[in-house]
Amino acid sequence: MRAAVLGATGMVGRTFVRLLEGHPWFKVKTLVASERSAGKRYGELVPEAPEEFKELEVVSLSDFLREPDVDLVFNALPASVSGEVEEKLAERVPVFTNARAHRYDDDVPILVPEVNPEHLKLVELQREGRGWEGFIVTNPNCSTAILTVSLAPLREFGIRDVRVATMQAISGAGFSGLSALAIHDNVIPLIEGEEWKIENESRKILRRLERSIVPAEFTVSAIATRVPVLHGHTEAVFIELERGSIDELREAFESFDPLRKLDLPSYERPIVYEEVPQPRLHRERGKGLTVTVGRLEESARGFKYVVTGHNLVRGAAGGSVLNAELAKRLGYI
C-alpha cells in the first residue's frame, strides 16, 4: 500500500519514516513538509534519513492536498493545522494520526491496539455518518499510551482509581520545545494541557464500546513533569483495585500479549517486567514498542508500580504504525 508521511521533518515525522523503512505492507511514496522544505531531497533536510528515503523529494502540504495519490496517510503535523487536513484526506483515504485534533470526537477512536482493538469499529460510524471513503484513527498522547498499556492487564481486577506522576523526556516537547538552560539541572512540574489529556484519554481508551463508547467508571488523576532525559517517559502509578494480589498482578503483566496471533509486522511484546525500570536502559526494548514495568508493591490504597516507555515510538509514531497494521489485518483498509 502506498503511504504518505505528513510533517516528515519533525521529531515524530522522522520517527515515522525510520519505522516505515522496508515495511512489508506500507511503502512510503510521499514525504510532506513545509513550503520552505518542498523540492529538497529528504536527505538534505534530515541527514540521518534512511537510505531508502534520502533521494525522495519532499512536497509541500498544499501540493499534496491537491492530489493525495496514496492509499493511507500517517500524520505528524501539529494539532493546529491537523483538523481540517485530516477531514479533507479522510474523505478519500484512511488517516492514522498522532495529532490530538480529533481524539475527542465521539466517532473517532483513540487506539492502542493491545488495549482497545474493538474501538476500530468506530470507523464504520465515521464512514456512515460523515460520508467518507476513508476514516481517522488517532493514537493517544505519549504518556497516555504508556500508561494505558500498563493498565490493560489490570482491568480483570476491577480498576477503581488511578493516580499517576509522570517524568517526561525532553523530546516530548519537540525540537524547539525547551531550551537547554530551562531543563538542565532542573525538573519542570508543569506541561501545559498534559494532565487533562492523560486523565481524559485514558478513560476513553479503557471504555467499553457499545453503539458508542461507554465511559470508564474509575477516576484518573495525573501530575506531569518534564525531566532532563532525552527519550523515554517514566511514570509512577498508584492504583486501587477491587481485588488481586501482588503475585496475580505480576503474572498479569508478564503474560500480557494479546495480539501475538495476528502476526502484525511491527508487533512486539507490549510489557516486560523489570524490577527497576529506567529509560536509558529500557526505552529501546522491543524496538521502542515494549513498555517496562517494575517496582510493583502494595500501597496504602492498593498497589503502586513504575512504568517506562519510548515516547516517540510507543507513545507516538510506532503506535500509529501498529494502528494501521491492525486496521489492515482486520480488513478496514
Rank of each mutant, 00 (worst) to 15 (best):
E251I: 11
G177Q: 03
V17P: 01
V12N: 01
E52F: 06
H233M: 07
G302L: 10
D263L: 12
N200C: 07
L206W: 02
E48I: 10
V187L: 03
S320A: 15
R208N: 13
P270V: 06
G302T: 08
T234S: 13
A90S: 01
D107A: 04
V272D: 06
N186L: 10
I191Y: 09
P215R: 08
D69N: 15
T166Q: 11
L77F: 13
W132K: 06
D105V: 02
V227L: 02
R329M: 04
I159K: 05
A165N: 11
G134F: 11
A99N: 08
V70F: 06
V237K: 03
T15I: 05
V321E: 00
D105K: 08
P47K: 11
F53A: 06
R280L: 14
M167D: 12
R314Q: 11
H23Y: 03
L206P: 00
V276C: 14
A99F: 06
R66P: 06
N200P: 00
L125K: 14
G315S: 02
W196L: 13
V85P: 01
L264C: 03
P189N: 14
L259M: 10
A8L: 10
E114W: 12
A173S: 13
E235Y: 04
D107L: 08
F64Y: 12
K121P: 04
P279C: 09
M11F: 10
R208L: 14
E156Q: 15
V276P: 13
E87I: 07
D161E: 15
V112D: 06
I191E: 12
V12M: 02
E240H: 15
P215A: 09
V227R: 03
V137E: 03
G158M: 06
S202M: 09
Q168L: 12
V108Y: 04
A49K: 03
E128C: 14
K54A: 06
G331Y: 07
A8K: 08
E274K: 14
M167C: 11
A76R: 01
E86D: 13
A49D: 00
A90E: 01
E297V: 02
R203V: 04
L61A: 12
V12E: 05
P50R: 09
P270Y: 07
V85I: 15
D263M: 11
A33D: 01
W132Q: 07
N311Y: 10
L61R: 08
K328P: 06
G22H: 00
L120V: 04
D247Q: 11
A169V: 05
P228G: 09
Q168S: 12
A327I: 02
S37D: 08
L330T: 07
V70E: 00
V137S: 09
T225V: 09
L72F: 09
I271V: 14
M167R: 13
G177H: 00
R2A: 08
V73K: 07
E133M: 10
